[in-house]
Amino acid sequence: MKFSIGSTQFDAVIGRLVVAGWTGRDQAAVQHHIDELAEIGVAPPSTTPLFYQVSNGLLTQADTVQVLGAATSGEAEPFLVNHGGKLWLGLASDHTDRKLETISVAASKQVCAKVCAKTLWDFNQVRDHADRLKLRSWIKEDGDWVLYQDGSLEQILPLATLCAHIEKTDNSAMLCGTLPAIGGVRPAAEFRAELYDPVSDQRIELRYEAICLEDIS
């Protein structure tokens, strides 16, 4: 997998991939997310936060991914990478099967690709103002892009805390949790997101489409 840091590129083979869930800093917001998922039949977590290890083969930078059926959608998340003895920050989507999520959250994480942007930032350069970073996503509904998530990283646990789960393992990566969905969690085939740094006026962008395979029973 090839990543870019400014004009520099490096290849990384991610050996361990973790998806963090229920990482909201405000427990009321966490409960809100639990409640909105309960509305689509998802059982509440045993504890919060949770850290799901998923297949490293799920990580991709492709513009399209294949999914089974139409009941899937993405979630914008900060993306931490431990490579070469350093931590890097990027952007990824925890694409999830919403139908399977009602049966097993862990299984729903495992069956969908996790799409990450090709751009990374040196985490040390944003560490001191990480809470100010802005995270937004959009889904396409009825032909129009609709704002789906909008907030800052102060709404999730500090990245400096979350990175402890990968900083001892080189070539590991973690999706760090997400923000509530505006209008509720729902399926969508086309997804785009951005991570914006108001200090440097730089952004990381991500866009992809989920192509539905025929669901035969």
Rank of each mutant, 00 (worst) to 15 (best):
T102G: 15
T102F: 12
T102S: 15
I103P: 09
I103F: 14
S104Q: 13
A106C: 08
A106E: 13
S108T: 12
S108N: 10
V111Q: 13
C112K: 11
C112L: 07
K114L: 07
K114C: 05
K114V: 09
K114F: 04
K114S: 06
K114A: 13
V115D: 04
A117M: 03
A117D: 01
K118L: 11
L120W: 01
L120T: 02
W121F: 02
W121R: 00
D122A: 14
Q125P: 02
V126N: 00
V126R: 01
R127G: 00
D128F: 05
D128Y: 04
D128P: 02
H129V: 00
H129R: 05
H129N: 02
A130H: 10
D131K: 13
D131E: 15
R132P: 03
R132H: 09
L133S: 01
L133C: 01
K134N: 11
L135C: 10
R136I: 08
S137T: 02
W138T: 08
W138G: 03
K140F: 09
K140R: 15
E141F: 10
E141R: 12
D144T: 13
W145H: 08
Q149Y: 11
G151T: 03
L153V: 02
E154C: 10
E154G: 13
E154Q: 14
L157Y: 07
L157I: 05
P158V: 02
P158N: 03
P158A: 01
A160I: 03
A160M: 01
A160L: 03
T161F: 05
L162Y: 01
C163H: 06
H165L: 14
H165V: 14
